[in-house]
Simulated assay, not measured.
Amino acid sequence: MGVKQAEAAGQYLKDVKFTNVFSSDLQRAKQTAAIIMRSNNHSPGITIICDPRLRERSFGIAEGKPVNSMKEMAKAAGQQCPHFTPPGGETQDQVRSRAKEFIRSLCQRMASEHLACSGPESTDGPPPSACEGDACPPCSSATNSCNHPADGALHLAAHALVVSHGTYMRNVVKHFVEDLDCALPHSLKMSQMFSACPNTGMCRFILTLERNREVAPSAECVFINRKDHLASLREDE
């Protein structure tokens, strides 16, 4: 099912132009990124940069065990599962620190590669896309009403696809919301913002950088946990 979901994501994003692609260096993420880019019509030969900072949270002695096993460990320790750190595992703060460092370096890299020769000073966060020509009319990210793959990514200087893992991406979202005071669509509830992302679910954030200034980017959420591309798979079940 995972391969089919990645293929569906690739088909959904096939007409989106990416200027950069980043992936966790874990095998399933690398495969997902490769499958998505294999279907892409506008980014031939782009290099997928594998970064260990995009790895999933390490769960220590709970690594590879059923979720119920970790829940039992958390209960025995008198803690709730989402906040529990198994022996030898990473804390949520450690994962978030990795996420913040990756976003900082992503912004630096894309600014140096693209902003020097372009007009707009925006770059996409995980995972973004671009709209070519007249393929998609302007959409309002505030209403989150457009389901086109390039929704919210018109006229940006650079567009990055970032492929990572569920717990890690939730920490990226928390960084955008809590550290960067991310602007949210009016219809989006905070519970949805921090909900678990489905496998190959898509989020889009627009990061705006100030040229030649070492300041944190401003962030805007266009959509969170989009799964339109999985509809055909559900119909086949």
Rank of each mutant, 00 (worst) to 15 (best):
G2K: 14
Q5S: 10
A6R: 02
E7S: 13
Q11A: 05
Y12Q: 12
Y12L: 03
Y12A: 05
D15G: 00
V16K: 00
V16R: 00
V16D: 15
F18Q: 03
S23P: 09
S24C: 07
S24W: 09
D25I: 11
D25S: 05
Q27A: 12
K30W: 04
K30D: 01
T32F: 02
R38D: 14
S39V: 01
N40Q: 04
N40D: 08
G45K: 00
I46F: 03
T47F: 09
I48V: 13
I48E: 04
I49F: 01
D51W: 00
R55N: 07
E56M: 05
E56D: 05
R57D: 00
S58N: 14
S58V: 06
F59I: 09
P66S: 11
P66K: 10
N68H: 13
S69N: 11
M70F: 07
G78I: 09
C81G: 00
H83S: 09
P87H: 04
G89H: 04
Q92S: 08
S105H: 08
L106T: 01
A111R: 14
S112K: 11
E113T: 06
L115I: 11
E121Y: 02
S122L: 00
T123G: 15
T123V: 15
P127M: 12
C131Q: 04
P138C: 06
C139N: 06
C139E: 05
S141M: 11
A142I: 15
N147W: 13
H148I: 02
H148Q: 10
G152P: 02
H155I: 00
A157M: 10
A157S: 15
A157I: 06
A158M: 01
A158G: 11
A158L: 01
H159W: 10
A160P: 11
V162Q: 02
V163W: 06
G166E: 07
V172C: 09
V172G: 00
V173Y: 06
H175Q: 06
D179C: 10
L180G: 03
C182T: 04
C182K: 02
L184P: 05
P185K: 13
H186V: 15
M190Y: 08
F194N: 09
F194K: 04
F194T: 12
S195T: 03
S195C: 06
A196F: 12
A196D: 10
N199Q: 11
G201V: 11
M202Y: 10
R204A: 09
R204P: 01
F205T: 15
I206Y: 01
I206A: 09
L207W: 03
L209W: 06
E210S: 14
E210Q: 15
R211E: 15
A216P: 10
E220W: 03
V222M: 02
F223A: 00
I224P: 00
R226K: 14
K227A: 13
H229Q: 03
L233R: 03
R234Q: 15
E235C: 09
D236M: 14
D236C: 08
E237N: 14
E237F: 12
E237P: 04
E237W: 00
